[in-house]
Write a protein that binds this DNA or RNA. Structure first.
Length: 404
RNA sequence: GUAGGCGUAGUUCAGUUGGUAGAGCACCUGUUUGUGGCACAGGGUGUCGCGGGUUCGAGCCCCGUCGCCUACCCCA
C-alpha cells in the first residue's frame, strides 16, 4: 500500500470541515479589515528564502525542501508565506506606488523538513496577512486585534505575548551589548548558544535550556535599550491593547525565528496543544522589502498555523439537511433523476441508485444526515407521486412529482 | 540528528509461564416483505507492520528492518 509521505496528512470528514471552517472564518474577518486575496507559487528560487528568512535561521539552514529543477534552477518549496508575498509585491512594482497601502491575505501549504510530532508536520498550512505601506504602530495594533477577532470567532482561548525587537537605530548597539554579556558567561551556556553568539546572538534569548535561561535573567534587555522612536511606539501599542482590553504579557525573550522582523513582535500561544504551542505569530518587517530589491516600504504581518488551531476548534453541530431520494423497484429509479435535478437548485440531494426496501432507505437517509427521506414505492410509481418523511419532525406526506 | 513509547479486525484496544485469534464500538442479517435512531438474536470481517532466527509449536522469546506517536531541537 502506498502511504502519504512522512509528516504529510490527508484531511477528510470532520477534519477537512474544521480546516475549511478556520479558513473561511479567517478570510471573512481579514476582508472586514480590508485585506484582499493573494496567491503566490509554492515553489520559489532558493535565494528568496536565504535573503528574507535568513541563512542563520534553522528554517533555511536545515529544514527546506530544496532541489534543482530540470532547468537547473536552485528552488525551494516555500517554508513560510511572507517571503513570496513580498517578492510578488516588489515584482509587481507596488513598492513604487508610494503613499498607497496594500493589504493581502493568503493561505496554503508550507513545507519544512523536520521530525514530525504533535502540532508539527512537514507539510502544514498557514493563513496569513501582510500589510504594506503603513508605518504606524496603529497598524501593528490593528493586526493583533484582527487575530483576536479570528480566535474569538473560532471560540478558542490563547495567551498573547509581545516584545519589541528594535530598529536599525537601537538594535545594533544592543546586540553589541548582548554579545559582550554572553561572551562573559559563554563557558556556562549550552553548545547551541555558543554557536549563536557568533551567528545570531538574539536567538540565545529564547534558548529553551533551563540553565541558559537562568543565566539570561540578568542579560541586558532590548526593551530597556530601545531608541526613543521604538520606545514610543511600543508604549503606544501597550496603551492601545490595554484600552481595548486585550490581555497580553511582555516577553522580553520573544524573538521571532525569522531574521526579517523588527520593532513589534508577537506570538499567540495555547497551553492545550502540547509543546508546539504557538498558534499564530508575526510582527513588523520594515526592511524586508528593501532586502528583496524593492523601495523601502514599511510592512507588518502575521501567520497562523491551521493544523494547530484545528486541535482547538469545536465545530458547531451539523444539522440534518437536504433530501435523500430512493426507489423500491428498479423501474422507478429513472424517475428519481429529474426530481433530484430540480431539488438540487436549492438543496443537498443524495440519490440511491439501487432499489431497496423502505427500511434500508430510511437507514441510508439517516446515515447521510438528510432531513427528508423521499422514496418512490410501487403505489407512488403508479400514481406519479413520492413519499416524503421529515426525519426530524417525523411527519410524512405524499406529493405529486411536479410538486416536489 | 538524539531519546522514549507503540505497531493485533473498519476503529479503540485485550491477549497469562510460548499451546487452534479475542472484546467494546462500527458494520451486515433477522425480529419488522412500506417506517431510521432504540431493543433483542445471530454473523468475525485478521498477512498479529515486514524479514529472518530459536522451538515440536511464536501475537508472545531473539536479531534486523520499516512505520507511527511523543519529547529534545525548531516554529505556525
Amino acid at each position: 500500500m502506498i502511504k502519504a509521505l512522512r509528516g504529510m496528512k490527508d484531511l477528510t470528514f470532520e477534519e477537512s470541515e474544521r480546516f475549511v471552517h478556520i479558513v473561511t472564518t479567517a478570510t471573512t474577518i481579514a476582508k472586514r479589515y480590508g485585506y484582499s486575496y493573494i496567491e503566490t507559487p509554492i515553489l520559489e528560487e532558493t535565494k528568496l528564502f536565504k535573503r528574507s528568512v535568513g541563512e542563520s535561521s534553522d528554517i533555511v539552514g536545515k529544514e527546506m525542501y530544496q532541489f534543482e529543477d530540470k532547468g537547473g534552477n536552485d528552488v525551494c518549496m516555500r517554508p513560510e508565506g511572507t517571503a513570496g508575498v513580498v517578492r510578488s509585491f516588489v515584482q509587481a512594482k507596488l513598492d513604487r506606488r508610494q503613499n498607497e497601502k496594500f493589504k493581502f491575505y493568503y493561505y496554503g501549504p508550507m513545507f519544512r523538513y523536520e521530525r514530525p510530532q504533535k502540532g508539527r508536520l512537514r507539510e502544514f498550512h498557514q493563513f496569513g496577512c501582510e500589510s504594506f505601506g503603513e508605518a504606524s504602530v496603529y497598524e501593528d495594533f490593528t493586526i493583533i486585534q484582527m487575530i483576536g477577532d479570528i480566535f474569538k470567532a473560532l471560540g478558542i482561548g490563547y495567551k498573547l505575548k509581545i516584545n519589541s525587537l528594535g530598529c536599525p537605530e537601537c538594535m545594533p548597539p544592543y546586540r553589541q551589548n548582548l554579545v559582550e554579556f554572553l561572551t562573559e558567561c559563554k563557558d556556562e551556556l549550552c553548545e547551541d548558544c555558543n554557536r549563536r553568539i557568533e551567528t545570531n546572538p538574539i536567538r540565545v534569548l529564547d534558548c529553551k535550556n533551563e540553565k541558559c535561561q537562568s543565566l539570561l535573567v540578568n542579560s541586558p534587555k532590548l526593551i530597556k535599550n530601545l531608541c526613543s522612536s521604538c520606545d514610543d511606539d511600543f508604549a503606544k501599542l501597550e496603551r492601545l491593547l490595554k484600552s481595548e482590553n486585550i490581555e497580553y504579557e511582555l516577553d522580553t525573550n520573544l524573538v521571532r525565528g525569522l531574521d526579517y522582523y523588527s520593532k513589534t513582535a508577537f506570538e499567540f500561544v495555547s497551553n492545550e496543544i502540547g509543546s508546539q504551542s504557538a498558534i499564530a505569530g508575526g510582527g513588523r518587517y520594515d526592511r524586508l522589502v528593501e532586502f528583496l530589491d524593492g523601495k523601502s516600504t514599511p510592512a507588518v504581518g502575521f501567520a497562523l498555523g491551521i493544523e494547530r488551531i484545528m486541535e482547538l476548534v469545536k465545530m458547531p453541530e451539523v444539522k440534518r439537511s437536504g433530501y435523500y431520494l430512493g426507489a423500491m423497484d428498479e423501474e422507478a429509479i429513472d424517475s428519481l433523476f429529474p426530481l433530484a435535478s430540480k431539488k438540487r437548485d436549492t438543496e443537498k440531494v443524495t440519490v440511491e441508485y439501487a432499489p431497496k426496501k423502505l427500511k434500508a432507505h430510511l437507514k441510508n437517509a439517516d446515515r447521510v444526515n438528510a432531513r427528508y427521506c423521499a422514496v418512490i414505492g410501487e403505489d407512488e410509481f403508479k400514481d406519479r407521486t413520492i413519499w416524503i418523511k421529515d426525519l426530524v419532525e417525523k411527519k410524512e406526506v405524499v406529493v405529486a412529482w411536479e410538486e416536489l
